[in-house]
Design a protein around this nucleic acid. Structure first.
Lengths: 226, 226
DNA sequence: ACATCTATGTCGTAC
DNA sequence: GTACGACGTAGATGT
């Protein structure tokens, strides 16, 4: 990895056209050729960047006050032109391959927990299966309620309007299956946006708020994902 | 801005729990207190990070081979603990405030261009207005075709299935208005995903692919956004 | 502050 | 490789 601090202008031409006027910025060049241009603030997104894999060509500056011009191009034909006026810092570092991030607490985990605790949806409920296959994608959980009726459950960390649309498409399809119909729908999430709740209600879809900590408290270690 | 290269472990506890085992990584600390942990590859997203505003507390390491432990905490109570084993590089840089990025070619520009060239949708078409207000949000363009029928146009850079859903909701609503009904729908985009095209067709929504360069060629500078 | 929508989204994963 | 959904989505914009 190369890290430099330089006074520069930047021009991106690709999915859109964008320009950075001259200023002092941090430039990170990674081993895979990707380039990040960072300002001294503004969270993790760079002002401008080029995604790997890409090639960097360095040429001498044309104007008197240009030190060098970098042309970075990737496979998709997008280009990033960095015109460097002054290099204030430059260093090279060996990092090696990263062992990578270990995560917990995402939707897959919520699904595993709820699959093991379907009684949270209603007494006497049974799980038919997780990832119930349909032509337009898998339904997170397919259950039968105490009276034996089929229920499709869509699980989200935060349920928004598109989650309701997704479940609606599943229900439309599932209700055409005479072996399954009538199929009810449940939207289960840690957090349900008001608009999503309204739309769900309008379509006869029940909303259930999941308490992740409580569910983890009842967790059976044998069914744990991690 | 401070930039360092260090052998470190990282633990994030917040919206989820995540852990980075010991390895050599690049650490960027910005003026606003935000911290980015980068590997030597993998595009612009850091392996781990903390968004501003946040406070950094540095304490001596407890184990023999820990140089120091950074505890970064933000307003939301999320924490990032960086256990540093060895510092391989450290430098400090003054960048100043960045003038910021200038963009072109986004959806707003597409909308402005198409509004000025509604004849691309059909001969004799008229624009009623951009951002036609409805109870569930504005319709990008509302037009009348040559025969005087109303047409709602949804504009996207890349049209996917959610764009069809969005337009469908608008059409459902608009068709309840006796002054407007019947209202047709058009999905206009630089690129239309196959699934979106199929769903649109199924719902009687017409798809139009926009040629951005051709539209810009016919651009009237007076109506230009930038 | 809250809700909604866009993004050069990026990233993983199933097909 | 393409398509699709999740994301610690982040960021902008309007109420």
């Amino acid at each position: 990895m190369r890290f430099l601090v330089a006074r520069c202008r930047v021009d991106y031409v690709g999915r859109l056209t964008a320009h950075l006027p001259e200023a002092t910025r941090a430039i990170m060049v990674k081993a895979d050729g990707s380039v990040l241009i960072h300002a001294d603030g503004g969270s993790y997104k760079p002002l401008n960047w080029m995604s790997p894999p890409c090639a960097i060509r360095v040429s001498p500056g044309e104007a008197d006050d240009d030190v060098e011009v970098w042309t970075v191009e990737n496979k998709a034909g997008e280009t990033l032109v960095i015109t460097i006026h002054e290099i204030l810092h430059s260093s090279e570092h060996e990092l090696g391959v990263d062992p990578g991030l270990v995560k917990d607490g995402v939707e897959a985990h919520l699904q595993a927990l709820l699959a093991a605790q379907v009684e949270r949806l209603g007494e006497g409920w049974r799980l038919l299966r997780r990832e119930w296959p349909t032509a337009i994608g898998p339904v997170d959980l397919m259950c039968r309620d105490a009276s034996g009726l089929a229920v499709a459950v869509e699980i989200k960390r935060r349920a928004e309007i598109d989650g309701v649309e997704q479940l609606t498409r599943y229900l439309d399809l599932l209700n055409r299956d005479p072996l399954l119909a009538p199929v009810r729908g449940i939207l289960a999430a840690q957090e349900i946006k008001p608009q999503a709740r309204v739309l769900a209600q309008d379509r006869g879809i029940e909303c259930v708020v999941l308490d992740y900590d409580a569910m983890r408290g009842h967790d059976d270690p044998a069914t744990r994902l991690f």
